[in-house]
Amino acid sequence: MKQPLLNVQNLKKYFPAGTDIFGRTTSYLKAVDDISFSIAKGETLGLVGESGCGKSTTGRTIIQLYKPTAGNILFNGKNIITHADKNLCRNMQMIFQDPYASLNPRMTVSDIIGEPLDIHKLTSGHERTERICELLELVGLNKKYSNRFPHEFSGGQRQRIGIARALAVNPSLIICDEPISALDVSIQAQIVNLLETLQQELGLTYLFIAHDLAMVKHISNRVAVMYLGKIVELAPANELYTNPQHPYTKALLSAIPIPDPAKTAMNQKTKLIGDVPSPINPPSGCRFYTRCAYAKPICADQEPLLSDIGAGHLAACHLTT
């Protein structure tokens, strides 16, 4: 089997959530709790789930913006947690959710895109200027914009600048942390089409984090579903959308709007009961059992493992075993 570009093994990220009178940590918020997955070169893995499930924390931990609590992150077979390598870090870049907050308002577009080039000492002088102009045109912006500031652009244009900055150092993997959620619907399609074009031209690999399930289906080869810090289902995109196995995945997919009143009336919504439990004190056993209409006694006692149920379709549910 071909070695994956990215291999995440038993990754955990806990944040201190409470202390005693001596300042010792007494509780942790388990944002990411023992997840494993891999991404092949040139593939797009979609990562979906409710707000607060740990999607963005997963991406930020992989790229080392957060230090992992436990687990391994293998990039091209090298563990980037135990063996820090500047070139490995250069090969992983991130596109952030808010295209305005992620750009320094006091820097020109030229300085923003050129900063990674300066940090990694890739180009200088005239070559640097040419590379910045090349990147602007690559993402669909006029090279004359290089001396403007972020506030002079629309949201979609700012996101294109963020994409150009990520591409500046020729990365292999780009983590897209909800790159379209802050944009208008018409602009979202343009950004997704741009990402697909860049992937084909440059051979990029994506971890695409998003809420929009319809858009995730469009861009992803495989999709992983997260709930309360755990991956509960992972499958090829078409397989997951046509044959979901986990009750949580079924509930998410039933909430996708259908632009046809007749089909909407026929579509049966799967309603979730109760509220999302606290990630500081998650339920025992299956973390979803407190909201699952099909829960059995075993669900409260034993945590289901993410198991292959056929054709590369993995699910963590006692109902599928």
Rank of each mutant, 00 (worst) to 15 (best):
V139Y: 15
L117A: 14
E137F: 10
G23V: 00
K12V: 06
P99E: 07
Q3D: 08
I132Y: 06
G18M: 11
A70P: 02
R106W: 07
E134C: 13
V8M: 04
K41H: 13
L5G: 04
G71N: 03
V32G: 07
E134R: 14
D34I: 05
R131S: 07
L47I: 15
I62L: 07
F37Y: 13
F75S: 03
G46F: 05
K55H: 13
I35N: 10
S110P: 02
N104C: 05
Q3M: 09
N10C: 02
T123M: 13
E134D: 15
G59W: 06
Q9E: 12
P99C: 08
G18H: 03
A40D: 11
D34F: 03
R24T: 01
D33S: 08
N72M: 00
T26Y: 04
L136I: 10
Q9G: 00
R128F: 02
K12R: 10
P105D: 12
T129P: 00
G59P: 08
A17Q: 12
S27R: 12
F96M: 07
L138Q: 14
P99G: 06
K121S: 15
L74F: 09
L65A: 01
M92Y: 05
D20V: 06
R24M: 02
R60S: 06
V32N: 04
C53F: 07
N79L: 01
I62F: 01
A101C: 01
Q3I: 03
C133S: 15
M94G: 05
D34C: 06
G125A: 13
L11R: 02
S102L: 07
R90D: 12
K30E: 07
T57A: 14
P105S: 10
G54N: 15
E50T: 15
L122H: 11
G42K: 00
L47F: 11
L65Y: 05
H120T: 07
